Computed example of a mutant assay.
Amino acid sequence: MTLGAMGMAPLEVAQIYQTLVADGFYSPLLSINAVLDTDGKLLKSYPLKLSNVSMKRFCINYVMLC
């Protein structure tokens, strides 16, 4: 089975491509990196988290053939 052969949400597909293009560096896709109050004070931050994943394991997890 190849990419696109099964129903997936657009965010899941974007996550797959992001990891493949980054040579196996996985970083969860986020649309928000910080939450501020009305005065600009930081309430919550979501820092970038990277991990190097085995491309074979990554492909198996997403039912792809590499």
Results as ranks from 00 to 15, higher is better:
21 V>E: 12
37 D>P: 00
32 I>E: 10
49 K>I: 12
61 N>S: 15
66 C>V: 11
38 T>S: 13
47 P>T: 04
20 L>E: 03
48 L>Q: 10
36 L>H: 08
55 M>A: 04
50 L>I: 12
27 S>F: 06
10 P>L: 08
4 G>L: 08
62 Y>K: 07
25 F>H: 14
48 L>V: 08
40 G>T: 05
41 K>S: 05
53 V>A: 00
51 S>K: 14
37 D>S: 01
31 S>M: 07
59 C>N: 05
65 L>F: 12
34 A>E: 09
15 Q>D: 03
53 V>Y: 00
63 V>C: 10
23 D>P: 00
61 N>H: 09
27 S>C: 12
14 A>W: 04
27 S>I: 09
29 L>A: 05
46 Y>R: 01
26 Y>A: 03
47 P>G: 02
47 P>L: 02
66 C>W: 05
9 A>F: 07
5 A>F: 08
32 I>D: 06
55 M>N: 00
63 V>A: 12
40 G>K: 01
50 L>T: 13
62 Y>V: 02
30 L>H: 13
5 A>I: 07
33 N>V: 07
3 L>K: 06
51 S>Q: 14
6 M>T: 15
59 C>G: 06
62 Y>D: 01
20 L>A: 04
22 A>K: 08
34 A>K: 09
26 Y>P: 00
5 A>N: 10
9 A>G: 04
61 N>M: 14
64 M>W: 01
36 L>C: 09
50 L>H: 08
41 K>M: 04
29 L>F: 05
27 S>V: 08
56 K>E: 11
12 E>S: 10
65 L>T: 14
57 R>C: 11
29 L>D: 05
60 I>W: 09
34 A>P: 00
46 Y>T: 06
17 Y>I: 13
28 P>C: 03
1 M>C: 12
7 G>F: 13
8 M>S: 07
4 G>M: 06
58 F>L: 04
27 S>R: 09
39 D>K: 07
29 L>R: 05
38 T>Q: 07
59 C>T: 05
35 V>K: 10
18 Q>E: 12
42 L>T: 09
39 D>W: 00
8 M>D: 03
30 L>F: 09
56 K>Q: 14
40 G>L: 03
34 A>L: 05
7 G>R: 14
2 T>L: 13
61 N>A: 14
29 L>V: 13
23 D>W: 08
2 T>E: 15
7 G>Y: 08
64 M>T: 04
2 T>D: 15
41 K>Q: 09
7 G>Q: 14
54 S>A: 11
43 L>C: 04
22 A>E: 13
57 R>F: 09
52 N>T: 15
38 T>Y: 06
18 Q>M: 04
48 L>Y: 04
52 N>M: 15
42 L>W: 02
42 L>S: 03
24 G>W: 00
